[in-house]
């Protein structure tokens, strides 16, 4: 198990390194002229040239990359023009607001987590529960409704669902406030009521996939001999299904959940834009509009960290559920 963990961590580190290279290459090599792109006023050539030197864009690319990476781990001095010494984890200064990018993220990350975590709990629970129950009640009205629900959810657009939820609950029924973010620690009730529509919209779309998958998995597992044997040797229905079938059926679902984290991050970008909540996603969209390269770069890196870490967690879970994996 330890060997497996170490192997997985090394692979994760390798992936992160590759992502950082790709992201860096993309942002600092690709634009024809990053400085001219972000310069809004007084863009005479002389000033542009000075800014280029200040930002280190004239240095060799390898130096730029190592400088950036060094900043993340130990911090670095970016010169007075950019706001002086930048503590680790240093992701540079925003080109547009001159704020440290890490500060921006410290502000918006709790918002995004407040959206994603409850939504993920909701969609996993709803999706897997729905799929399992409809598999056990195959062919009933409940099953048909569940299939219809998952088909609808899989073809729906997040922003359309979000918009419709707002029209219904905020503008017509007036039982919920306009979506917004309050810190959970300040006012839990306001936190929940401000974000509940975002959770529901995300959960509706994402649970569809899980409902479908877990239904198919469960049906397949129920037909297997070992489940029939468990029933035949006298285990009660709930015990046989709960202990034997569920364990076998859940394994592939865990894999999909791991792969889905990228999708979920994309989902929050759309959700935040739809509901006008200022989280990681909306910050990224705004940074893109304003050409704020350090912020975009940091968004990519942070999302990649999320995904790599989540994948390691999923693999470990997988190893716990399915002992065969540990040997691989």
């Amino acid at each position: 198990m330890l060997r497996f963990l170490i192997k997985r961590l090394l692979l994760g580190a390798l992936t992160m390194f590759a992502v950082s290279l790709v992201a860096f290459g993309m942002f600092f090599m690709l634009p024809r002229d990053a400085v001219a792109t972000m310069c809004v006023k007084n863009c005479n050539p002389e000033r542009l040239e000075r800014v280029r030197v200040e930002l280190g864009l004239k240095d060799p690319l390898v130096d730029q990359y190592t400088g950036y990476m060094k900043g993340i781990f130990v911090g670095r001095d970016l010169g007075s023009a950019q706001g002086g010494f930048c503590d680790a984890p240093c992701l540079g200064y925003s080109y547009t607001s001159s704020e440290e990018v890490s500060d921006i993220f410290a502000r918006v990350l709790p918002v995004t987590l407040s959206i994603v975590i409850p939504a993920a709990v909701l969609w996993l629970g709803l999706g897997i529960g729905l799929g399992m129950v409809s598999a056990l009640r195959r062919g009933t009205v409940f099953d048909r409704l569940a299939i219809g629900f998952s088909l609808t959810g899989a073809s729906m657009q997040l922003y359309f669902v979000g918009g419709m939820l707002m029209i219904i609950f905020v503008y017509t029924l007036k039982i919920l406030p306009v979506p917004h973010y309050t810190s959970l620690w300040d006012d839990p009730l306001d936190w929940a009521s401000g974000l509940v529509l975002a959770w529901v919209a995300l959960a509706f779309l994402f649970s569809a996939v899980y409902a479908r998958l877990s239904r198919a998995q469960m049906l397949e597992t129920l037909a297997e001999d070992f489940v029939r044997t468990a029933r035949a040797k006298g285990l009660t229905k709930s015990r046989a299904y709960g202990r034997h079938a569920l364990r076998a059926a859940i394994t592939p679902i865990v894999t999909i959940a791991g792969l889905d984290i990228g999708g979920a991050l994309g989902g929050t970008v759309i959700t935040e834009t739809t509901f006008g909540i200022q989280g990681l996603g909306r910050t990224a969209v705004e940074a893109v509009r304003l050409g704020d390269l350090p912020t975009i770069m940091a968004t990519v890196l942070i999302s990649a960290v999320f995904i790599v870490v989540a994948n390691i967690v999923v693999d470990l879970l997988y190893a716990v559920i399915d002992p065969r994996v540990r040997l691989g």
Partner: peptide, 21 residues
């Protein structure tokens, strides 16, 4: 392992900046 939408967000302006002022 890459988040498509976020990469797309990032690539779109950089590619555009490569070809257009």
């Amino acid at each position: 392992a890459l988040p498509f939408l976020i990469f797309a967000l990032a690539i779109m302006p950089t590619v555009t900046a490569r070809f257009y002022g």
